[in-house]
């Protein structure tokens, strides 16, 4: 099953500049592990000590995964994952 993952500019050094990559996994954790096999170092930028890093936001179909099941959030074929750095508003 394929899941599209949108990569922010700042992490594209790990994806040879690609704005979006495809991966697979039944949870977000599995997806990041899968991506790391082809894009070494990417997972380490997102996850630290089994949790999402403070300044990393990940959205599943536009919903913040911290309000779903975090790294344990279940994924389905055709889901859309967006990674963004946390920035200020206001």
């Amino acid at each position: 099953m394929a899941i599209e993952v949108r990569i922010p500019t700042i992490l594209r050094t790990h994806t040879d500049g690609a704005k979006a990559v495809e991966g697979k996994g039944s949870t977000l954790d599995e997806l990041f592990a899968d991506l790391d096999t082809r894009h070494p170092g990417l997972r380490g930028k997102l996850v630290d000590g089994g949790r999402l890093r403070k300044f990393v936001n990940v959205y599943l179909n536009d919903e913040d995964v911290r309000f779903l099941d975090g790294l344990g959030t279940e994924l389905a074929d055709g889901d859309d994952v967006t990674i963004l750095p946390a920035v200020a508003g206001g």
């Binding site: 700042i10 930028k45 890093r53 403070k54 300044f55 990393v56 750095p85 946390a86 920035v87 200020a88």
Partner: peptide
């Protein structure tokens, strides 16, 4: 969610909460 320019940080630790 803005265009990419707005997320143009130099590194991820420059994020802000």
């Amino acid at each position: 969610r803005y265009g990419e320019l707005v997320y143009g940080l130099r590194n991820i630790d420059e994020g802000f909460v």
